[in-house]
Design a protein around this nucleic acid. Structure first.
Lengths: 220, 220
DNA sequence: CACAATTGTGCAGTCCCTGCAAAGTTGCAG
DNA sequence: CTGCAACTTTGCAGGGACTGCACAATTGTG
């Protein structure tokens, strides 16, 4: 499904090179830290010239966290493929959940290491879901198409951005909690976040001194 | 209010230098495009050495879109200062609305130009609300404190991230619509987005062909 | 095998960004 | 006002990201 049968030698090699660079980047950065790894190191580990590196990735960060090029279209297709009875928000939830499941199943080690890297370099968080970039645009396009609104309308834009936010939060919590006793799956955390969004961010789900008593407790 | 009386010559000069660099950066980039302006150009326009530039901003982009250092704490304080009867989501809405009003009133021209820049370089969108950076962290901390939850709990993280997403969407729509006939204010767009979030992203607010086919089917 | 198309590579060069140490400024106490 | 301490600015040297360009290598095709 991910690899077409009718694929020439050329495209296969491209995939391999790209994967080699990505894997090398993730491994080295997880091992030595982002700024202790140069593009030269990565290309050397992947057996290509440094110049070739930039034929595949625009920046060093992209090699570590950049999604492969067909992630966007795939997510978009997933959103449209959800049963028509689902609300748009539910469709997005299911689509993302399916995507996470597929991606983690396919390359578990890679993603575990990626999460280590993210934990050490929160700056890269924006790129995990490619904040505002290609994937989110495709997602927005899919939502827009599904609900029959223009892609620059508030609703698709907001649902797409909110989904990205939920995804980011899920990743953060997952990578910060996985060292503790409770090991929640990324999908569960994602579902939790999306459900909370769908619930309108109603006050707190489980605070101690909350709904009424907040009025009694002076804050500032 | 913004400038304390008890402020030495030193701090005043620092403020001035920072503002000069920021203004020069925004002006030049709006005029010539992001990659046709070098740090050297900016520092020259601000009458400081290139080296000094990096004493104030870590990156070129920060000089264009980076919020001044006390934005984070200010937003946090705003969240905590909202009346206790408000829900957390409502408090965030009011806080952001107030922040936008204050900031736009104080330096309108600067912000208009900033929006031009953002429109030309969507890559910078993440930095408008400093996606995942200082301001969002402070916002999350404020929310957490307000509702009495730890700052690494899902709820504060998600509300903060969602607010950032709403802000981004509002800015996008504002800067893409302001050339058309309908000129909505940034605050209105922000309120619209936050309300949509608070409504749980209920299906489409105004879809044409969907309303019936979806209305018959309940969401999960 | 010849030919076109695509991909890999080396090279030169620009620019971003940093550490360090030497100036120049400002604040302050004597 | 004078000397000292704290801080800021600046120049310099340098590493590393990234790009354009020309050329070599490889693959697809007739």
């Amino acid at each position: 499904m991910t690899t077409q049968a009718a694929e020439g030698l050329r495209d296969r090699k491209k995939r391999q090179t790209r994967a080699a660079l990505s894997h090398a980047a993730v491994r080295l950065v997880a091992e030595h830290g982002l700024d202790h790894v140069t593009v030269e190191d990565i290309s050397a580990a992947a057996d290509v010239s440094p110049r070739t590196f930039f034929n595949y990735f625009a920046t060093k960060e992209d090699a570590v966290l950049g999604p492969d090029p067909d992630t966007g279209p795939r997510v978009r297709a997933r959103v449209l493929a959800q049963p028509a009875e689902l609300s748009a928000a539910a469709a997005v939830r299911e689509a993302l959940s399916a995507e996470v499941a597929a991606v983690v199943a396919e390359d578990r080690e890679l993603w575990l290491r990626r999460m280590c890297v993210v934990q050490q370099h929160p700056v890269l968080l924006a790129k995990v879901f490619s904040g505002g970039e290609a994937v989110e645009r495709e997602l927005v396009a899919g939502i827009a198409e599904r609900v029959g609104l223009p892609a620059d309308d508030t609703y698709p834009l907001l649902l797409g951005a909110a989904a990205g936010a939920a995804f980011r939060v899920a990743v953060v919590r997952w990578s910060s909690v996985r060292w503790s006793s409770t090991a929640a799956s990324l999908q569960d955390l994602l579902a939790e976040a999306v459900d909370m969004l769908a619930g309108g961010l109603a006050d707190p789900p489980s605070a101690q001194s909350q709904s009424q008593s907040r009025a009694t407790s002076p804050q500032s």
